[in-house]
Design a binder for these strands. Structure first.
Lengths: 305, 305
DNA sequence: TAAAAATACTCCATAGGTATTTTAT
DNA sequence: ATAAAATACCTATGGAGTATTTTTA
């Protein structure tokens, strides 16, 4: 049996004429006759009772026809589904994004993305880098927005921009009065960190040349679960911290703490899109990347490829 | 697209492994890979996202898979239907039978038919010969039990038996006292007939050498709609009539009229099975014919082929 | 006699095979 | 290094064609 055969019997049933059915199927009459005969032999039944003046479907043929029609309808559904998904922007794009980026980047890009690609549907997840990478591998998300991630087996990544760090401290902190904050100034300051798992914690330690915070004892247990909490701790006088530029833009307006840009080399993290190298809808990622690049504020440097 | 292709994608989706899927489908891995690739190209989408360590179905692939499974289920249904109907006795046999035969023949054969072929289902129609022939041509019935029918275009017929006629008259009728009723004795008797359309009416006229009853006037309008009515008319003294043997057997026990067998040549009608020569379930007709022949009483002569 | 299905045959597209390569872990 | 999918290339089945025959109304 065969989809072609089913198309043939439907055509014969509807035209009651092998020649006309063959025409409708764009094949010759002997071809169609031969296939139907073969199908009847394969099934061991007679589907059409025919003379050279009449073609009539048998009761068992009628029963089969019902299913044949259903089958052909479903093949059409498959073709329609496929057609609708030939556009890589069709179907929801599952995006994972780290918590230190999501609340500050997503508001910038959602509206322009909608404007440029009205048909795109997003499903967002906000999770730690490791979780996002696992979910990428498990096909639970299609793309992850991560910071400072090395290339990983099975994944490709696409650099988006460098996001400078800003120092967040109390307004009366000595560093707030320095004209130019240098790399050395940050060595062994009282740095407050996000909790384990946030890549920003590791990145801040690296910029401040701190090796293993947990081994130092006392402060090791004071870790904030979010950037918002971290800034509250700074405001309460527990120490300083580093804040990525996109978050700093928002925080500067909402808090009473001083925020100073760090301009020396390596005082930034690089944000990239990561995705499985087998992911079939790369044009959708390209679209996403372009919108992100176009919406960045001036103090965040786009990485050109 | 192709039923084979759908089988392949179902196998890959279930095994998550091209090699195992190929094995399950009894083809080589390159064959299966090639077909799936072709299908993906034809549909313009990616069904499986694959590395050499993992195979994962895409969301659109998942959507297609649902329909593919439904399609494969329906092809199984078609095969099952066909298998169940490979027995020619499967499915109802639609039998048409003339009214002068039905009430007397059917009781003889129904039980034995059920005994020999328990699976057979019958659908009976009792109608005049012309109607039965039309319904045969229209595929509304599969076989007709008729009397004295010539071969007709598109139909085959299968002689079953010769059914002698009996003379039905009042007990005091002169012919009831004759030892041997001869052909000539029936010339111009007061013959009562069934209504127009009953083949028995024509047959009786022929046996009695009556050409065109309707031209004779007076008696022409007195026609009975059934054999039962006809016998009532005889009993009421309106005339004689000819009764076929199977009916005579029953009538002789139920009425007060004399019934005398006619033994001279041509004093019988021949009953046959008629069916479209394209009818595909001839073995079922053979079975029916055999049961009928085996159940006939001794005074009805089976026609051997 | 004419119309239609069946048959006979030839051809070629493609599903399928084996051997090998590529790729990613 | 290994496992698995992809590629290359060959083979052969079977679907499609044309020409013709058979059938039957």
């Amino acid at each position: 049996m065969n989809l072609r055969d089913l198309k043939y019997i439907i055509a014969v049933a509807e035209t009651q004429h092998f020649g006309h059915a063959a025409e409708r199927c764009f094949v010759s009459q002997p071809t169609l006759s031969g296939q139907i005969k073969k199908l009847e032999e394969e099934l061991g039944i007679t589907i059409f009772e025919r003379t050279n003046r009449s073609v009539e479907i048998t009761p068992i043929g009628e029963a089969i026809l019902i299913h044949a029609r259903q089958i052909m309808e479903r093949t059409d559904v498959i073709k329609q589904l496929a057609l609708a998904h030939q556009d890589p922007l069709a179907g929801p794009l599952h995006i994972g994004i780290i918590p230190t980026l999501s609340p500050y980047l997503m508001p910038l890009i959602l509206a322009p993305l909608k404007a440029h690609y009205p048909q795109i549907k997003l499903v967002l997840s906000e999770e730690l880098s490791d979780t996002l990478l696992k979910r990428l591998h498990h096909h639970e998300i299609d793309v992850a927005l991560l910071a400072n991630k090395e290339k990983e087996a099975g994944l490709e990544s696409h650099p988006l921009f460098n996001e400078p760090f800003w120092l967040a401290c109390l307004p009366d902190h000595p560093l707030n009065h320095k004209k130019n904050i240098k790399a050395k100034d940050l060595d062994s300051i009282d740095l407050l960190l996000l909790s384990e798992g946030h890549c920003l914690a590791q990145q801040a330690m690296e910029v401040c040349h701190i090796k293993e915070r947990s081994e130092q004892g006392d402060m090791a247990d004071l870790r904030a679960a979010s950037l918002e909490t971290l800034l509250q701790l700074v405001e309460a006088g527990f120490g300083c911290t580093l804040v990525p530029a996109l978050a700093a833009r928002i925080a500067s307006a909402k808090t009473n703490i001083a925020l100073r840009p760090l301009t020396f080399p390596n005082a930034h993290r690089s944000v990239s899109l990561a995705y499985r190298n087998t992911f079939p809808r790369k044009p959708a990622l390209e679209a996403l990347a372009n919108v992100i690049r176009s919406q960045l504020p001036v103090d965040v440097s786009v990485i050109s490829l």
